[in-house]
Amino acid sequence: MTTPEPEPRWLAAGGRRLFSVLHRPPAPPRAGVLVCPPLLNEHARSYRLFALLADALAAHGLAVLRFDYHGTGDSDGEDADFTLESARSDSGEALGALRRAVAGAPLVVLGVRAGAIPAIHAATAGGAAALWLWQPCTDGADYLAELQARDAARWRAHPAGLRPGEAQTLMGLRCTDALAEGLRAARVESCVPGAAPPVTVLDAAGGAAAPGPVRRIDLAAPLHDWIGQPGMGRFPRAPVHALAQRLAATLD
């Protein structure tokens, strides 16, 4: 089924402008899905994947809103403005915008990698009907350590022989003290102000266990191995469409 063209739009978030794209289904949506993107370098690396997934979910009757946190991507703000606290706030504002766009349809929040942290917060505070967590990093300190290790390995293998020598950067992007401290303090338990909605975890087969009783969907290789790859990947559409079908079926 052909979906309408994606609608780029600005979201007002506490006086700040967030760039977003709304993917509408051909008919009135049966649910709205908010995508909380991953952080730092993983945002750009996965951008195409979630554009394709949003389009595929729209073909299954879901409205999908994707957005960039303040200080990232095409949203307003400087790189140094991005913090985990602002990401939580932005996610809540974006969920409110999606709620208005889908007029009464149930809401789902999809958190990708460390985007799971603001996603869980938005879903629980915003009364979402379901939470989808994509290769989630729900312990911010672990995530920070993982990125630091990956960053160190990247510099060791750098083809131009570069050495970092820059404070407050991680994987080439600004990681201020505020962001690092926010990540170190972030745990799933501290992100959940109330009862969480039903959770579906999407991960590689044999991936990390998620807390609590959850539904689990195994991701095909092209959909999970982009994290550790050095270059910018291209994502085949077939597994994206198959996954969208499975995700949409969880809402039946």
Binding site: N41, A44, Y47, R48, D68, T72, G73, D74, D79, G172, L173, M232, G233, R234
Partner: peptide, 14 residues
């Protein structure tokens, strides 16, 4: 390349 319009490390936006 395949990097979206914000560019590597947000270079396009900046």
């Amino acid at each position: 390349g395949f990097i979206h319009r914000s560019g590597p490390f947000r270079l396009g936006t900046r």
